[in-house]
């Protein structure tokens, strides 16, 4: 029982950390309908940025803020230079464009800052938090809390004036134009916020595994979170993250011994497939997906 609880709790926390990587994806999709497959690369870039600032001598909090500012600006830049000319192109072109951006960043960032893994110490000790016979991972606990805070902040943000504009834009571009909202600016801001969300994911994951290009492979679990939760729902990021994390922890925890290998990626793949087959728009996604 304690084993089950431990898998459950750690899985849920890991899932929330996946949500952090998924949050940016949803924000961008929600506002502009662009599936940003470069979100993993943004996470990597954010982690490198934070590491570079710390290495430069800034204290951690200042490094995180500076990285957030940098990533916000980079998000705006990407939207303005790369995505705006693609308006009206088929989805495959946009998908490939973001993949091209991913390749570019995976070359540029490690090329300039060094490809070997960099340590990013955010001062979380190794000792577990022990409740009964359940060992909780302290780093994941912090990560989970940060994820909840960021997801909550995003939800609240959509209740502010600017957030309301963003929601209007995500509902209907043409109608927003008609009432005088700047759709372009709203989309740009959503890219900027996605950049900030990438800093959260980058710093936390970077502190766990070290900063190198493999951070961009967080895209795969993030995609599972997004598909399951609903591709345009922030609530979905939270619930989807929990579900992907828990299923990806509990099922392998009992099955691996018999499967003779690690089954987590199988579970993640099946989550994506089954969701798409049964309920393509996910748990909380809007049901206006064009079906055949």
């Amino acid at each position: 029982m304690a084993y089950f609880l431990e898998l459950l709790v750690n899985g849920a926390l890991v899932g929330l950390m996946y949500s952090l990587a998924a949050l940016g994806f949803v924000l961008i999709y929600k506002s502009s309908g662009v599936p940003n497959l470069a979100q993993g690369a943004l996470v990597m870039m954010a982690a490198y940025a934070a590491w570079a600032m710390v290495d430069f001598g800034l204290p951690l909090w200042a490094a995180v803020i500076a990285a957030a500012a940098l990533m916000f600006a980079f998000g705006l830049l990407v939207e303005r230079v790369l995505l705006r000319p693609m308006v009206g192109q088929p989805v495959i072109m946009v998908v490939m464009l973001t993949l091209g951006l991913e390749i570019l960043l995976r070359g540029l960032v490690p090329g300039l800052l060094g490809a070997a893994p960099k340590p990013l110490d955010i001062g979380i000790g190794l000792a577990p938090v022990i409740v009964g016979d359940v060992f909780m991972n302290r780093a994941y606990l912090v990560g989970g809390v940060v994820a909840v805070v960021l997801i909550g902040a995003s939800m609240l943000f959509f209740r502010t004036r600017l957030g309301t504009k963003l929601r209007a834009v995500s509902d209907d571009h043409v109608a927003s134009w008609a009432v005088g909202l700047s759709v372009e600016r709203a989309i740009a801001i959503s890219w900027g916020i996605a950049g900030i969300a990438a800093v959260g994911a980058g710093v936390l994951w970077g502190s766990v595994q070290g900063v190198d290009w493999t951070l961009s492979s967080l895209l795969f679990p993030a995609v599972a979170v997004v598909i399951l939760g609903g591709i345009d729902s922030i609530k979905g990021v939270f619930v989807g993250g929990l579900a992907v994390g828990i299923l990806g922890s509990v099922i392998p925890g009992y099955l691996d011994a018999y499967a003779g290998g690690s089954t987590r990626d199988v579970v993640t793949s099946l989550i994506i497939l089954l969701t798409i087959m049964i309920r393509p728009y996910g748990i909380f996604g809007r049901e206006d997906i064009e079906r055949i």
């Binding site: 998908v95 598909i227 994506i272 497939l273 798409i276 393509p280 997906i289 079906r291």
Partner: peptide, 20 residues
């Protein structure tokens, strides 16, 4: 999967199958 969805969702479904 293509009988059910298209576009981005088909991308994700085929991607998952690659992993499987």
């Amino acid at each position: 999967a293509a009988l059910r969805v298209k576009g981005l969702y088909l991308v994700m479904a085929t991607l998952a199958m690659q992993y499987l």
